[in-house]
Design a binder for these strands. Structure first.
Lengths: 325, 325
DNA sequence: CTGTTAGCGCCTTCAA
DNA sequence: TTGAAGGCGCTAACAG
């Protein structure tokens, strides 16, 4: 393994000069800097992170915190794309992605504490936001840098990355009403009351009220209580289209609707683009939120303190565009 | 921050004694060990991982490698459960989960190399297995410890954790034929030719041939070519049930079938248990592979070298049970 | 059973 | 612009 001493020796300089040169310290002349960097590259030198982190007192690690399983029944493929987006931005910064995940909030919290106290991790990305979440509180108290992906429920001063779910709700609804010729869409959401569901619902309501139609909302039951859904569909024969907060939810409702109306089909718009293949009738549309971009943007925000040289104040939030297709 | 020196001072022993006591080294008397550990606990001492890793030359990190996006179109919720299972086993070992993920194999490979060479990561879990994968080759060459989750395609001497997909294929088919009264199931798979799909298909074939029926296989097209599927369904009016390699795939085909046969429904068995809610007709069944357990078992296997004290040879693979529901 | 000492690889203060 | 020296926190010979 080639260390910084080896480089120093080859270059006939001291270790400290080598160190500075490799870190692009301006105190070293450009010429020697380049010379030493060339040697390092030739020797295939790679700094030892553990040593570096030890002296600097900070790890080159970003902790990515998942919602505890108890709070989030659904294993969302969304997350994988976010991870990919995060890592894409981490790699050029020579940072590494570490994951905190568990069944219970308490476990996740322990995980995060250990990262902070033992591994000296100073930057985090939260894939959720709950009121009273101990992890969030802890990070705030420790004044560590963190970015939320999604809508922050508590302190609006937190850094966050999100889509404009309200606008997406409007856009989806107008797509149904305008482009797909719907008149009486039903809005279908889960029983979780996620913040993004509320925003999308409000967008739906705004768009539909504009048309003078009174909005119809349906919330799927927690239990597998199909009867209620079927009954709801029977009581609302006017339903001619679906707007759902998630592809699965939309598909679920769509399926029930079709059971009640054999051979017929209605257009649907939902979120996340999670189906690989289109459905036969091409009636099923989905709003792509580009989760990978959410991840990438979160990293950008996470490092504004380090990287914002001069110029204006860096933003505390980033709102990313969506796309209906 | 309290270091090992602080503990040593409080306990009136040398640093090395403190270190050994905290690591439960038998060379220290049980009494002093307990005394020192008590002090450490009281002071809230937590070892600095960076320092520890630096001296030991090995990080307390397990690298979890995802398939490159280019090889794996589908963001699978499966993976999140696996991560949770992994972390559950890592926490008590004071290990941390680091993720390698990217768009291209080359990026993922760089990620892994950096983990090995810069972060001194020595243990990996691969969430895939491809012929000629550079990551796998690299880990083998470096003689690093790794466990594959899934069926290893190349060197059968690799450590791995898997379900018995062949048996699951048989079980699912027999469930359809026996319990659900099917006569002419169709087996539906993706166009990827994943190894687990082959195994499940072979199980299906074996089970169905046993009944003297000739097996019907359908492979979904890569492109959104619905016409072909619909045509296939029309040509096979005998189909009275579905066995699919994945819930999404099963649902997809099921949907097409229903379009062709309005108002009717047939039973289906697929894999992964990815739908939160049951479908209206209760005809849709799924085989649960317990991904969380796969993750946990992978960690167990990953540490057999460290933890196998005496007794028999530790296994190189673990086959986990599944469940139809 | 316990203490002394050296060193892991790197950065940084201080001195030149 | 560069070098020498010390130290980050911990472990592991080597002594006793």
């Amino acid at each position: 393994m080639t260390t910084i001493r080896d480089i120093a020796k080859k270059a006939n300089v001291s270790v400290s000069t080598a160190s500075r040169a490799l870190n692009n310290n301006p105190r070293i002349s450009v010429k020697t800097r380049q010379r030493i960097q060339a040697i390092a590259a030739a020797e295939g030198y790679m700094p030892n992170y553990n040593a570096k982190n030890l002296t600097l007192g900070e790890a080159n690690v970003v902790g990515v915190v998942f919602p505890a399983a108890e709070n989030n029944v659904q294993g969302n493929p969304f997350y994988i794309d976010i991870l990919r987006g995060i890592n894409k931005q981490l790699a050029p910064r020579h940072y590494v992605l570490s994951v905190a995940i568990g069944d219970h909030t308490e476990q996740v919290f322990e995980n995060v504490k250990s990262m902070v106290e033992q591994a000296k991790v100073k930057r985090f990305i939260l894939l959720y936001s709950y009121a009273g979440d101990p992890v969030t509180e802890y990070l705030r108290k420790k004044a560590l840098r963190f970015v939320i992906i999604g809508e922050p429920v508590e302190d609006k001063n937190d850094f966050y990355v999100d889509n404009n779910n309200y606008q997406a709700g409007i856009a989806g609804t107008e797509y149904l009403l305008g482009h797909l010729g719907a008149k009486h869409p039903v809005f279908v959401e889960s029983s979780h009351e996620w913040p993004y569901e509320r925003s999308r619902r409000e967008g739906f309501q705004a768009a539909i009220l504009r048309r003078g139609v009174s909005p119809l909302i349906y919330r799927l039951q927690k239990e597998n209580n199909d009867g209620i859904t079927v009954e709801f569909i029977r009581q609302h024969p006017e339903i001619d289209s679906i707007m759902a907060t998630d592809d699965m939810i939309g598909f679920e409702f769509y399926h029930h609707w079709q059971c009640a109306h054999p051979g017929k089909s209605i257009p649907a718009v939902s979120f996340n683009h999670s189906f690989i293949l289109q459905l036969a009738n091409h009636q099923f549309h989905s709003i792509n939120l580009f989760p990978e971009n959410l991840g990438s943007a979160a990293v950008d925000l996470l490092f504004t303190d380090k990287e914002n040289k001069g110029g204006e104040e860096p933003p505390r939030k980033i709102i990313l565009p969506f796309e209906i297709s």
